[in-house]
């Protein structure tokens, strides 16, 4: 009896992987192969031979500049998104605000974190563009000329400010459960041992939240680094961040070298991979105390 049971289990086990075959096939065809193709293309010349020239061409000043501004915008929007989202989440979860505001804030965060792309750009043009509501109100009510300060919605800060509209809510959505996981007893135990609120945050709460914070930061970084639609609708091709450059290249070979396009895309994968690798490494270091 027990013997036949084990045999039965063996056979089902050995064929069980067939059940995920469709999924693996799909992932291979529409996720992994296309990506690999780009990676390989980055190391080939038009004749299909191996070369490092495409990669070397990435180090042209104009392309390096594109990477640099992309990284800056992604870092700025991820960092500001993390900080602002964290502050709002702390205010809502621990700051003594009435409980009933929590549910609408979470719902709104769900909406806003998915409100990216073309319409988001329209919203910010209508608000902070040259004739946008806030620009006009500042001018008419306070006599403050926003565009006189050098601000432009089509600039670094304009784009960062726009990205924050989906970055902050994403942070709120991810970090709120983590804040809920902070036990009241930890705070009270720290207080009993003489720690100030600041010491509690520095020595207990932040180290505990650190993996979640890092992970969200990496996610937010990748999120804005790969964003095309918002930037394109907002700035056209006037701000040459990497995804826009790549977009233009795919559409019309603006780099006059298709294989440089692969290298450009490869560079993007590399940067988001490095960001996530860095995250995994730091998490492994800071999570020794976890199961």
């Amino acid at each position: 009896m027990s013997n036949s049971l084990t045999v039965h289990q063996r056979t089902t086990l050995s064929w069980a992987w067939l059940g995920v075959l469709p999924f693996l096939l799909f992932a291979l065809l529409f996720l992994i192969l296309p990506t690999l193709n780009i990676v390989i293309g980055a190391f080939q010349n038009p004749e299909g031979n191996f070369t490092l020239e495409n990669i070397a061409n990435l180090f042209k000043p104009s392309i390096l500049d594109s990477y640099w501004i992309s990284i800056k915008i992604s870092l700025a929007s991820a960092l500001l998104g993390c900080i602002a989202g964290f502050l709002i989440a702390v205010a809502v979860v621990l700051g003594g605000l009435p409980r009933f505001i929590r549910s609408p804030i979470m719902t709104f965060s769900g909406v806003a974190s998915n409100f990216a792309g073309v319409p988001l750009a329209f919203a910010f043009i209508a608000t902070l563009g040259r004739v946008g509501l806030v620009t006009v109100l500042l001018r008419d009510w306070l006599g403050f000329n926003l565009y006189g300060t050098g601000f432009n919605i089509l600039s670094f800060w304009g784009l960062t400010l726009t990205y924050l509209f989906f970055q902050i809510p994403l942070m709120i959505l991810i970090i709120t459960p983590a804040l809920d996981g902070l036990k009241r007893e930890w705070r009270e135990a720290a207080a009993m041992l003489g720690a100030s609120g600041f010491q509690y945050w520095r020595m207990v709460a932040l180290p505990i939240l650190w993996p979640a914070l890092l992970g969200t930061f990496a996610l937010l970084f990748a999120n804005s680094f790969g964003a095309v639609a918002t930037a394109y609708a907002l700035t056209g091709s006037s701000l040459s961040i990497v995804p826009i450059l790549l977009f233009a290249q795919i559409r019309g070979d603006v780099l006059h070298d298709p294989h440089l396009g692969y290298a450009l895309a490869f560079g993007m994968i590399l940067i988001t991979m490095v960001a996530n690798g860095l995250y995994l490494w730091m998490r492994a270091r800071s999570e020794r105390w976890m199961k």
Binding site: K183, E185, W186, E188, A189, A190, M192, M203, V204, P207, I208, W289, M290
Partner: peptide, 11 residues
């Protein structure tokens, strides 16, 4: 103070 649920700092 000692709490019911230990409340040791896990980190």
């Amino acid at each position: 103070m000692v709490f019911q649920a230990y409340a040791l700092f896990p980190n």
